Computed example of a mutant assay.
Amino acid sequence: MKVLRKIGFPISLVYGLVVYIRNILFDKGIFKSTSFSTPTICVGNLSVGGTGKTPMIEYLIALLKENRKLAVLSRGYGRKSKGFIKAVPSTTVEQIGDEPFQIYSKYPEVIMVVDADRRNGISLLEAQEKPDLILLDDAFQHRKVQPSFAILLTAHGQLYVDDWFLPTGNLRDSKKEAQRADIIMVTKCPPNLRQDEQEKIIKKLQPLKHQQVLFSSLVYDTVLQGEGSTLELQDLRVKKVLLVTGIANPIPLVTYLKEASIAFEHLEFGDHHFFTEREINAFDSKELILTTEKDFVRLKGKVDNLYYIKIEHKLLGEGRKQLQEALASL
């Protein structure tokens, strides 16, 4: 893989040039960015791969839902449908995609819609639902919409400032576009990340005066969730466990399980993978199948002995308070 990435360097130069020209056209107003009367919070990143976007959307929902009529707009990546769709109780994961389905399953009181055309999605939300606030999932690079507030995620140990354009690196947008963010959230941090280490990262990121840099770690639950049942994580030590993942980066989960002294076999699939009947039959006979919450919504009802491990952001230090204060004016 590393060799292929090096070979792809000329392609990454062409890709970077295309990205640069595109952003210049938006900056000069040749390509139009649309603002909307309803406040919008954009959550996204500059790279491909997992930085914790869906858990961050869920964090914001939990933070804001008590006093706001919230809507979430997602592209619905990997769904087997097109156009604007609003989630209802009869909606399937195939219709809206795994991440939107996960969010709607946890927060059915929140308006969940998918539309690859963000401008169309917001316009229809304003006309039909009239939300107080719209969360835009994975929309940082979609410049046709000018958000009211932007949160840029970057993973600890994989900062965008250390990366390069696809396919040599993981960047899908230019590093300088980070200047459009209001908050830069460094995710997947060690929970005990020292203040001096945080300051080194801030210095590396070189935020502008209007930008805040916050830090979060991903916290795994010690209680596993199944269909109508739960299981303690420690109980896995006496079971034959098959870990099935279809996410961008399973390494943090794999590391967490190993540190918890859990022995397991791991089947790794691509991000947003829809499992075939043949694949399901290959692991359905295992004593216990452990997966992620995103994979669970695609496997639920198709696999026996299936459990998932919940994950959520925990902001370090005064991060939660700082985030609340930054969003208070929206």
Rank of each mutant, 00 (worst) to 15 (best):
L124W: 07
N23Q: 03
I151N: 06
K321F: 13
F275W: 07
V14E: 02
A155K: 02
R298I: 00
Q128Y: 08
S216T: 07
P55W: 09
D162G: 00
K106T: 06
L288R: 11
H210T: 02
H266Q: 00
C189E: 05
L159S: 05
G8L: 13
L315D: 05
G319C: 07
V18P: 01
F274Q: 12
R298Q: 12
S47R: 13
S105E: 08
A127D: 14
F296P: 08
S285Q: 15
I183F: 05
F264W: 03
N281Q: 15
I24R: 08
V114K: 04
K209D: 14
L193K: 10
I96T: 01
S12R: 07
Q324C: 10
F275V: 02
T255P: 05
S148C: 04
S216M: 05
K200G: 05
L25E: 00
L25M: 10
A116H: 12
S90W: 05
S47N: 15
L193A: 04
K209N: 14
L233F: 08
L153F: 03
D304G: 14
K106D: 04
K188P: 01
L231P: 06
E94N: 13
Q95D: 08
L136V: 04
V161I: 15
M185H: 01
T245W: 09
P207Q: 09
E287V: 07
K294A: 06
K2H: 12
K300F: 01
D138L: 06
K314G: 04
M185I: 06
I151Y: 03
S217M: 06
F140G: 04
R79E: 02
K286F: 13
T51N: 12
A260F: 00
L208E: 13
I103P: 06
Q179A: 11
S33V: 12
D235K: 15
L224N: 11
Y59L: 10
N249G: 05
P131S: 10
F275C: 03
T40Q: 10
A181C: 09
L316M: 07
V303D: 08
E199P: 11
K106A: 11
T91S: 15
K302Q: 13
L288N: 01
E277L: 12
D304L: 14
E293H: 02
E293G: 11
P108S: 03
E94I: 00
